[in-house]
């Protein structure tokens, strides 16, 4: 697989006098078409990493290469063309006065001609199933709908990489499910490289790969199954485990012999059925 993002020896601190760094010697390679979840407790440097990749912050040391280009002051705008970002607060990233205007904002910035812009806005709204709301103002939309508009704004630009910076954290469970389903579709069907920064462990468990950050350092980087089989370690750095894992934990307390291996929801159901039948 081709790597699309390469991060070498990246360090960053907001305050140069502060000896403790927000990110400390991070090395990462992300392949094209991967769905990567970035987890870690509050203040572990996840959002900072996302902003660094998009060139919204400048690293103290180290280099970031996106799609073959090294991030610098000259290349930052070209690199931003490859990356779409969806942020946490649905209200604060809504720039246009209505839905269509917001989706068009990025296209306007890139000087896309009038006819093509209208076509692409329409397509993008269709992709997130918001065509009916094109003329709605942000106050008339729910949080989940606003996030879908933000995703449409990213899709209209046709980037290769979409970064979700805690985009589901301010949504209700239903809105969250919708956005996660959309993320999955973008990744599996449309072939976008997805980086999702999240606190929601169930969302992370759907990714191809999980990177765990703790105090600015990458402490684990593996497939979800392998990460979650290290349950206790995750608890120690203040992270949760997915629901099947918690269920396993509770069952073990009751004296049930549970498999050591991490189980997804479906595998858990299968295992439970087998277990009950065997009895």
């Amino acid at each position: 697989m081709n790597s699309i993002i390469e991060i070498k020896d990246l360090s960053f601190s907001y305050d140069h006098e502060e000896p403790k760094k927000v990110l400390d010697q991070v090395n990462l390679t992300i392949d094209q078409g991967q769905w990567v979840a970035l987890i870690g407790h509050n203040g572990s440097g996840k959002s900072t990493l996302a902003k660094l990749i998009d060139g919204l912050l400048t690293p103290t040391t180290g280099t970031i290469t996106v799609a073959g280009q090294t991030l610098s002051e000259e290349t930052v705008w070209e690199i931003r063309d490859h990356i779409g970002m969806v942020f946490q607060n649905p209200d604060n990233q809504f720039i246009g006065a209505d839905v269509a205007g917001d989706v068009a904002f990025g296209l306007e910035n890139r000087g896309v001609p009038y006819e093509e812009m209208h076509l692409r806005v329409k397509e993008a709204l269709k992709a997130v199933n918001m065509e009916k709301f094109a003329a709605h103002e942000p106050v008339r939309l729910s949080g989940g709908q606003k996030q879908r508009v933000a995703i449409a704004g990213v899709l209209a630009l046709r980037p290769q990489i979409v970064i979700f910076d805690e985009s589901t954290s301010m949504l209700d469970p239903k809105g969250r499910q919708e956005i996660v389903a959309l993320m999955r579709r973008l990744n599996k069907e449309e072939g976008f490289t997805v980086i999702s920064i999240t606190h929601d462990i169930d969302e992370a468990s759907l990714a191809d790969r999980i990177i765990v950050l703790d105090d600015g350092k990458v402490i684990a980087d593996d497939a979800p199954a392998k990460i979650f089989s290290r349950g206790n370690e995750l608890f120690k750095i203040g992270l949760d485990v997915p629901y099947p894992e918690r269920l396993k934990h509770e069952l073990a307390h009751l004296g049930v012999q549970v498999p050591k291996k991490y189980l997804t929801e479906k595998e858990m159901v299968d295992w439970l059925c087998q277990y009950v039948l065997k009895k």
């Binding site: 970002m85 607060n89 990233q93 720039i95 904002f105 910035n109 009038y114």
Partner: peptide, 27 residues
């Protein structure tokens, strides 16, 4: 002020560089 900062970041992430070379969605 927080909103303004978030909005500015979101605008920059979506390629806003000022009025130069910008097209208009509404005509």
């Amino acid at each position: 002020l927080t909103r303004a900062e978030d909005l500015a970041t979101a605008m920059e992430a979506r390629g806003y560089r000022g009025g130069e070379g910008r097209t208009k969605y509404r005509r």
